[in-house]
Nucleic acid binder design. Structure first.
Lengths: 196, 196
DNA sequence: CTGGTATTAGTACCAAGTGCTAAAAAAACT
DNA sequence: AGTTTTTTTAGCACTTGGTACTAATACCAG
C-alpha cells in the first residue's frame, strides 16, 4: 500500500475532503503510517485539525440556516421586497446547479427561485402555488447571477388568489419567465387551513 | 439578573439554540453562575457539549450536501423507465421539503421531481425544459410518498421538441400535474449548443 | 560515507469537556 | 429557629484530539 509521500498527501486531501470527520488516528492506520506523519502532512497541506474542520462545516451550515430561515426558506437571496407589490432576488448559479454534461442550469432551480419569490412577495402567513406557466427562454450557466423579479399583477380576494408575474434575467437578458397563481389565507395571523 | 433555576434553564436552552457555538464558560459568565452550574443545567436538559453540538450541526450540513448532490441528478428515485415513452419515480416528502408553518410541501420540490423525470424520459444525451404549465392540485405533506408518472405525448422532430405530460399522485389521488415542452439534441452525442 | 528528506517517538501542554465527590449556600418545610 | 431539601460551587482525575517542539531513526541518493 506504500506509495510516495506525494501520493499519500494527495489521497489524504481527498479522503479528508470526502469525509472531514476523520481523525488523525484513523488516517494513520488507513495509510499505514504514524499519527505524526499524518500531522506533518496536514501541516504541509495546511489542512486544519478535525475540530476546526467540523466547525467550518458547521459554521457554513449555520450561516445558511440563519440566512434561509428568516427569509422564509427562499431559494436565492431576497434583496428587495415590497409586500403585495414586487420582490427581487438574486441567485448565483454554481456547479451543483447545472448539468455536468453541458453546464446548463437545471430548470427546477430557476423554477424554485421564481416560485419561492412568488411565495415571499405575498403579504400573508402562508401562500401556496396553485398553477404556473413558465418558459425557459435562454440557458443559464454556472457562474451566472440570476436576477429575478416578481410583480403582483392581480388579486381575487374572493378566491384568495394572487397572480404574479416573474421574470429572471442574466446580464439584462431574460432567461426565464413565468406566471404564478398563488393561493393564500387572506388575513394575516389567520389560522385557516389550506383547502384540502 | 438572577432568576430562578427554571428561568435560567429556559434561557440557556434558547441561547444555545440560538448560537450552538457558545462554551460553558461563556454561558457561565453570561448568566453569572459557575461553570459547574451550567454543566448541571445541560445535563438536566440533556444538551450535549459544545463539540457534540457542533458536530451535530456539521453532520446535518454534511447530509444535506451528500443529499443534494444525487438530488442534482434526479429528484426522486426512478423506478421504471421506457425511454421516449414513459417513466415513473417516487419521492418521499420529508420535513426539509415542507413549510414549517403548515407542513405543506414547497411547490418547487414537486416541480423538480416532475421536471427531472421529464428530462430523464427523453432518449437523448441531454434535454432542456423549454416551457411548462403545472397545476398544484392538492397539498402534499411530509411523510407522503409522491408517485410521479411522465408520459411522452408527442414529438416534433424538426424543432427537436418532445411534449410530456406528468402526473403526480399520493395514495392514488392526483396532487400535481403538468405539461412539459422539452428541447433535446436528437442525435446522441451531438454537441449542439442549446439555442443561445 | 555523508547529507538531506521522511518518518517515527516522546514529552509537555491545551480546550472543552465528563464523572465523581464533597462542601457550602439558599430555599423550603414544619 | 432548626432541619431537610434543593441548588450551587469547588476540586480533582481523566478523556479526545489535537499543537508545539525535540530528538532519534530510517531511507535514499550522490
Amino acid at each position: 500500500m506504500k506509495r510516495t509521500k506525494k501520493e499519500r498527501q494527495r489521497l489524504l486531501t481527498e479522503t479528508i475532503e470526502d469525509n472531514p470527520f476523520v481523525t488523525d488516528e484513523q488516517l494513520a492506520s488507513q495509510f499505514g503510517v504514524s499519527v505524526q506523519t499524518i500531522r506533518l502532512d496536514r501541516m504541509e497541506l495546511s489542512i486544519p485539525e478535525l475540530r476546526e474542520r467540523i466547525k467550518g462545516v458547521a459554521a457554513q451550515n449555520y450561516e445558511n440556516e440563519v440566512k434561509s430561515l428568516p427569509l422564509d426558506e427562499v431559494i436565492g437571496e431576497i434583496i428587495d421586497i415590497e409586500l403585495d407589490q414586487r420582490a427581487l432576488s438574486i441567485f448565483d448559479v454554481k456547479e451543483e446547479h447545472v448539468f455536468q454534461r453541458n453546464g446548463i442550469a437545471r430548470g427546477h432551480h430557476l423554477f424554485a427561485q421564481a416560485n419561492s419569490l412568488a411565495v415571499a412577495v405575498i403579504n400573508d402567513e402562508l401562500a401556496l402555488t396553485v398553477k404556473s406557466n413558465v418558459v425557459f427562454v435562454k440557458p443559464v450557466k454556472a457562474g451566472d447571477r440570476v436576477i429575478t423579479k416578481a410583480t403582483v399583477r392581480g388579486k381575487n380576494s374572493e378566491k384568495n388568489r394572487t397572480y404574479i408575474e416573474v421574470v429572471s434575467t442574466v446580464n439584462n437578458e431574460t432567461v426565464f419567465k413565468g406566471e404564478f397563481e398563488m393561493y393564500h389565507t387572506k388575513g394575516s395571523g389567520d389560522n385557516h387551513e389550506a383547502s384540502n
